[in-house]
Design a protein around this nucleic acid. Structure first.
Lengths: 205, 205
DNA sequence: CCAGATTTGTAGTGCTCGCTACAAATGTGG
DNA sequence: CCACATTTGTAGCGAGCACTACAAATCTGG
């Protein structure tokens, strides 16, 4: 009783290529032919390894979010809410214009509106975007506890705000905005957070 | 020589329904069957009246932007940059959660990433979004001339920022955010503009 | 009331979609 | 070296896509 013929492609490498296709064309815009072509395999291999087009997307989303976790941890480790926001938005401006990836964010480009047959794809993407917002909210709540954010500040509202700016930057990037344009947006956006930060009088210390 | 059988549907009414379908499902997600069903006509009538699916989308986009022109004029008529931004963002929060329309903005929901056969649709949408940004930039340039914005303010950057926030709010709305959540975002976002506004000492006048 | 012009509804067209049946190929265990 | 398990490439499945050929229907002008 043998173990069978071994597959001759690397699952992670293939998934990486699939992610790029979804990123560039969206879930519905990406065809199986494009995917298998980019992955360097044939349709049966794709279905044996991932199950379906939608399951392949979810695997790609998992890979995408997992890759950003290390960076997110670094961002959230900044000492103040202002610094968290600054690192976040400046990092986003950089990452979303990284020429080694398609522009924008997979969680947005993947598909905001889909046909009736793929109605749950937008929900899947929205749920993953919401995770980032929640991480920011927790961080801002901590900042408020630590006295870093003003007593009147609303951590949930601030997190929603930063999340919205990130999404807006993502759409801008996907439609051709360059790094400088995104950085300008980030710089302005940060001011709204500074406004709610407790200013430590540096000279007085 | 007769004039022919009269069409028995109203072009504008049908276009209105088509716009809703594109808004809800995106360009690629909307099928001709869904469109003709919503419009209450048959495919040959659609093609005779609009030419093609893509031409129908463009007609819907024209209708969409034309409808917003009156509102935009009112927004841009506000006396200060801060007030323009406030009216803009608060209005967006309201409009994008108007239950009589699909949530979000057609210029975003229409399709950020498309398949290779519809590659110019995202460009078409981006160009129309850019129009709003340009209107804001002109208004902010005027505000700077009028001394309403600080000398150090960058009208183009501010316009890009407001445009990005609008887009971010649109995506949030499309994924279920309610009016209150969007309003919170707007309130925070406005602070970044206030920061660059020249404060008129009210009590001193 | 007829001739010409246009729209209508029916019923498809060819094409591409996501997905899979099948047999040859390639590995391991006995 | 043979039996078995799994993957591979080919080739094509039914379904749904955007779009249209066609003839009946409905108008106006004479």
């Amino acid at each position: 009783m043998g173990i069978g013929r071994p597959r001759n492609f690397d699952r992670d490498t293939a998934l990486e290529q699939a992610m790029e296709v979804f990123w560039r064309h969206g879930y519905e815009g990406a065809t199986i032919a494009q995917l298998t072509d980019a992955m360097g395999i044939n349709p049966p291999s794709l279905y044996a390894a991932f199950g379906s087009k939608e399951a392949l997307l979810k695997a790609a989303l998992d890979r995408y979010t997992a890759r950003r976790e290390a960076w997110m941890a670094e961002v959230l480790g900044a000492p103040t809410a202002r610094e968290v926001t600054a690192r976040m938005l400046m990092g986003v401006a950089e990452k979303q214009t990284d020429p080694s990836n398609p522009p924008g964010c997979l969680l947005v480009q993947g598909g905001l509106a889909c046909g009736s047959g793929s109605a749950n794809v937008p929900f899947e993407l929205a749920a993953r975007r919401a995770q980032t917002e929640e991480q920011l909210r927790h961080r801002f709540e901590r900042a408020k506890d630590e006295g870093d954010l003003a007593e009147t500040a609303d951590p949930a509202a601030l997190a929603r705000y930063v999340s919205a700016v990130i999404t807006g930057m993502s759409v801008m990037a996907s439609s051709g905005a360059d790094r400088e344009a995104l950085t300008q947006v980030a710089v302005v956006a940060i001011k709204a957070i500074e406004d709610q930060s407790v200013r430590v009088p540096v000279a007085a210390n």
